[in-house]
C-alpha cells in the first residue's frame, strides 16, 4: 500500500463539519461498493486507500438529494491518493497524487477487516 504525505491544513473547516469520524492524516479506504442512483464517488477510486487531507464540512447526501429527499448532512472529506495506489504499475509517476472529495458513508478505516 502506498500512502501519500499529508500536511494538515492550519485552519478549521469553514463549514460546520457535523461529527466527523475521521481527521486529517487518517488512512481510509473507499468502499468498493456498487449502488444504484446518483453517486459522486468515482469508479476509479473504489477500493483504493488514501489519507484524509482535510474535513470539508458536512453536506447533503447526493444519493438522496438527487431524488428530492432529505438524507441529512454527512461529513465530506478530501482524501489524497498516490498514483501508485490508484493505477498500480501503469502509473507514470507513482508519487504524484490525486485529491478527491469523498463522503463519510463511502469510507472505512484503512485497517478495517
Amino acid at each position: 500500500m502506498s500512502l501519500p504525505r499529508v500536511d494538515p491544513p492550519p485552519f478549521p473547516p469553514p463549514y460546520p463539519p457535523g461529527n466527523p469520524r475521521f481527521g486529517s492524516g487518517d488512512a481510509v479506504r473507499v468502499r468498493p461498493g456498487i449502488a444504484p442512483g446518483h453517486i459522486r464517488t468515482p469508479w476509479y477510486l473504489r477500493g483504493k486507500t488514501g489519507v484524509v487531507e482535510r474535513v470539508c464540512g458536512a453536506f447533503g447526501k447526493p444519493e438522496e438529494l438527487a431524488y428530492g429527499r432529505d438524507g441529512g448532512r454527512v461529513p465530506l472529506y478530501r482524501v489524497r491518493f498516490t498514483m501508485q495506489e490508484v493505477w498500480g504499475g501503469k502509473a507514470s509517476r507513482p508519487d504524484d497524487t490525486i485529491d478527491a472529495e469523498i463522503f463519510e458513508h463511502w469510507l472505512e478505516a484503512a485497517d478495517a477487516p
Binding site: L76, R80, T97, I98, A100, E101
Partner: peptide, 12 residues
Amino acid sequence: LRVQVHDSTADM
C-alpha cells in the same frame, strides 16, 4: 515537483 490533481467530485 509533485503533481497534485484535484478531482472536484462533490460540493467544493
